[in-house]
């Protein structure tokens, strides 16, 4: 299940120079650009064995750890439902 700690670790792999717990707007604060978001989606897909749909790759879903966690939870739930 998605946890803030795991998501923070994934973010740190992509941009190790930032403290992601200190911002509520990663994109506005220049911590993630659009290509970092794509890298992040690929990492989240692999980490949680999910497929985040392209239509969900929107800036608002990657603003902060809580938003990313919510996105991951939604697709982990969908994945588990599909497996049942």
């Amino acid at each position: 299940m998605a946890s803030e700690r795991t998501i923070e670790q994934v973010l740190k792999q992509i941009r190790p120079e930032f403290d992601f717990t200190a911002s509520q707007d990663f994109i506005g604060d220049g911590m993630l650009d659009s290509y970092d978001v794509i890298t992040l989606v690929a990492e989240l897909d692999n980490t949680y064995a999910i497929l985040i749909p392209g239509i969900d790759i929107l800036p608002e879903n990657f603003q902060n750890i809580a938003a990313i966690e919510q996105l991951v939870r939604k697709h982990v739930s969908n994945h588990e439902l599909r497996l049942q």
């Binding site: 220049g30 650009d33 659009s34 290509y35 978001v37 794509i38 749909p53 392209g54 239509i55 790759i57 929107l58 800036p59």
Partner: peptide, 25 residues
């Protein structure tokens, strides 16, 4: 461009997020 990419007005510029979302939608 604020993301460490350097380009001039003579160059091609692409709004990566907008194009990606356009294609997926």
């Amino acid at each position: 461009d604020g993301d460490n990419n350097r380009r001039a007005k003579d160059h091609l510029r692409m709004d990566g997020s907008a194009v990606f979302n356009f294609v997926q939608v």
